[in-house]
């Protein structure tokens, strides 16, 4: 499998409300994290946002970014998860 250095997937789940996209993207922009793709959907009444981002030009590690996103998630009352893109490629592609 070709490794995708620096690519991460941020998954956000929560009650749909104003400010979720803004809250998350403000942190990403603050660390120069490049958003490659962004998609959202609704599962029952839960808002789900998936962000594919590139950390290679950023000034933060995955672990550091995760910590900050957790704090923001607490504040805006959503759940956020950060995984390396390689996890998804490994599990979903032969």
């Amino acid at each position: 499998m070709q490794r995708e250095n620096g690519k991460i997937v941020i998954t956000v789940l929560g009650k749909d409300r104003v400010g979720i996209v803004a809250g998350i993207s403000r942190i990403l922009a603050g660390h120069k994290v490049n958003i490659l793709d962004l998609a959202s959907t609704k599962m029952e009444d839960v808002f789900v946002m998936v962000v594919l981002a590139d950390l290679s030009g950023a000034d933060v590690s995955i672990a550091g970014l995760r910590e900050e996103l957790y704090r923001e998630a607490d504040r805006i009352k959503v759940e956020v998860m950060v995984h390396h893109y390689d996890v998804f490629k490994a599990m979903q592609r032969v």
Binding site: T11, T41, V50, H83, Y85
Partner: peptide, 19 residues
């Protein structure tokens, strides 16, 4: 098969890991 992992596949994976 597309090489880019789609949102459904991402959510399935996250569900396995997180829940």
């Amino acid at each position: 098969m597309s090489s880019k992992v789609g949102i459904d596949e991402i959510l399935e994976t996250v569900d396995m890991i997180a829940y």
